[in-house]
Write a protein that binds this DNA or RNA. Structure first.
Lengths: 240, 240
DNA sequence: CGATTCCTTGAAGGTTGTCAACGTTGGTGG
DNA sequence: CCACCAACGTTGACAACCTTCAAGGAATCG
């Protein structure tokens, strides 16, 4: 069976691609953008790829009724703009949640077209796209199947997992720079209800969210609410 | 400004990649699978990529409470399995909605690793991943911001657009092989409510859905419900 | 033709949205 | 230091939307 060998080789390829891309990002000078601004504010060309070095950002979508939905949330270490680089409107609707630091690969220097010439990089980019898809799928499942408590639980667990994976959290506490209105836009709830549910989670000693600080008391309780059940135990995720 | 040239070149690259991949799909013998079965039923290896030649399929997610959520719906012409090929569990949870015909690229013949060696193919695969992401984002927005009527409207419009783009629909009627329970699983609603909303859309002469046949009476009415407003007019999508 | 699945509809109740008001916080200037 | 202000968080009452439960009708398939 060559499958095991292939997967090992694949993992190596991904590591190489990761370093390739990382080098490309380092080539350009980093920039900083203030909180609550559009990502395009600090970038001239729209066909760019961003590496979020520090801070949080999010992908928004405006509806004609004026309501703003948040489709994805980017954490330190994430790459932004891959999915939209092949479409006309790139990085529009990405806005910062905190002040951030980014590295960019400019369209003039290297388009996605050029990046794809290297197999390892192409693989790594495909992997990154898959990661973003996975996040969307998880959120999609939560929105379509869970009530407000379940959605909040899913969100709190997801951020915790993503931050942990990158060593950005120790213990059961982390920083969540989202206003309750933004949490609502992300989970499809109103501010008032987000507030109510957070209170109930606090009263039941499951998790505490206040002043941009999350503390998880009962991980299993959250997992139960999120409907994750036995899935977590099965998937040993060794993601980078 | 080389940007215009680049985009033209990019579009050519995508066409080439498309043909490349198409040729790969044709190399393997096509298969058929009955309705309501797992996609893995007709495939041995799990690390495969599928080209859906005919019929509909969907991506499911099981929750520990037994509820099934539908995360994406695949139409004739779609490629399935790209996003999960870099993860351990591929094609699980993909199940057919009708009887289908597929072409597969087997892991033994060519892994994603190998496909990525060709730049055009790599670009086209990235484009496909972006397409799937775009679908997820649209659904995400609908679930998070719209009520049942808006979600139904979004779904009806999306299928119509995707089918039109591939020349699979003429006029304002198309075939929708989804049971109301499945529509509910896709939009995060119960069967009963899907039924009620469909009735109201019919009563108001906006759209008619019965017996797996959709007829759109009032496109603008649907767009208004979907909150698409002026977005549609702006985006001239020339997708393949 | 029976049996199963799906669609349809009603009544009751729960979850969430809406609206409005008040409390809290942090920053700014007097 | 305090007063003020603006933005955010918090809470309650009420209404709307949606789910749940239940039952009957229609369609499909053996």
């Amino acid at each position: 069976m060559t499958l095991a060998e292939d997967r090992v080789g694949l993992r190596d390829q991904l590591q190489i691609g990761r370093r390739e891309l990382s080098a490309r990002f380092h080539a350009s000078p980093p920039r900083t953008i203030g909180a609550g601004e559009l990502l395009t504010a600090g970038i001239k060309s729209s066909a760019t790829i961003c590496h979020l070095v520090a801070g949080w950002a999010c992908q928004g979508r405006d509806f004609s009724n004026g309501h703003l939905a948040i489709l994805d949330i980017y954490l330190p270490g994430d790459v932004i703009g891959l999915d939209s680089v092949l479409r006309t409107r790139a990085l529009s609707n990405v806005l910062t949640l905190t002040s951030i630091a980014i590295e960019v690969i400019n369209a003039k220097d290297a388009t996605l077209d050029e990046l794809m010439t290297c197999r390892s990089t192409a693989l790594y980019i495909a992997w990154l796209l898959g990661q973003r898809q996975q996040r969307a799928d998880r959120l999609l499942g939560a929105l379509s199947s869970l009530d407000a408590r379940g959605r909040l639980a899913t969100m709190l667990l997801d951020f915790f997992k993503r931050l942990s994976r990158r060593g950005l959290v120790t213990g059961s506490t982390y920083n969540l720079p989202l206003k309750q209105a933004q949490i609502g836009a992300y989970l499809g709830l109103t501010v008032a209800h987000v507030n109510r549910v957070l209170r109930s989670l606090r009263d039941e000693r499951i998790a505490n969210v206040e002043k941009h600080a999350v503390t998880i008391f009962d991980v299993e309780g959250l997992m139960r609410l999120a409907g994750d059940g036995q899935v977590m135990a099965a998937t040993g995720n060794h993601a980078a």
